[in-house]
Design a binder for these strands. Structure first.
Length: 173
DNA sequence: ACAAAGATCCGT
DNA sequence: CGGATCTTTGTA
């Protein structure tokens, strides 16, 4: 079952950890569907968050973050990698979750490459899209959630220290 | 109009 | 540790 709007319109700090273990579902051009559960995410929260793309206010690139939760925010980084984010919160409340890793595929650049993302996904809605959506996961007692600071945002000063990265770690023995 | 940096990854 | 590769953004 596809996860619906209400899930994504909550605050990003609730949505981000809740996305762990959920399936990211992608229907490719040939009709095949891949489902991989999410193992690593980061929360970016509002204009005051100096690590967030909304820190300069609304711009051409980040405008979709100001929409209601559920929209897809993709952008190209280092001229090579498409980063996948899902917008959260209400309208005019710029927040998003960066999907940094799915099962067997760690690293946001690798996720985008595997899902064959590009500019055309910008602004699409995971609650209605025919090619990218989220489904309830089936992870029970095997993992626990580890919280750390966000990766690659040293420019953000004190905000870089916020424990807004969430990772699923396999419980051992 | 220009320069600089970037929510990264890979090979050496 | 440096190169790839190009868009976005601040500054003038």
């Amino acid at each position: 079952m596809r996860i619906s709007k209400k899930f994504f319109t909550r605050d990003v700090l609730e949505v981000a950890p809740d996305l762990l273990g959920k399936f990211i579902c992608r229907k490719f051009k040939d009709g095949s569907i891949q489902r991989n559960f999410i193992v690593e995410v980061e929360a970016y929260r509002g204009e005051e968050d100096m690590a967030c793309h909304a820190r300069f206010g609304k711009t051409r690139r980040n405008q979709v973050m100001y929409e209601e939760g559920g929209k897809i925010y993709v952008y190209l980084i280092y001229g090579m990698y498409w980063m996948l984010n899902i917008v959260t919160g209400g309208k005019a409340d710029p927040q998003a979750v960066l999907i940094r890793g799915v099962e067997d595929l760690t690293g946001p650049g690798r996720v985008g490459k595997w899902l064959l993302l590009d500019k055309s996904f910008y602004g699409e809605d995971v609650t209605t899209s025919k090619r990218l959506w989220i489904e309830q996961g089936s992870i029970f007692g095997k993992f626990f959630v580890k919280q750390t600071s966000r990766i690659g945002v040293d420019y953000a000063g004190e905000w870089a220290k916020k424990p807004w990265r969430f990772v699923l770690v396999e419980r051992r023995k």
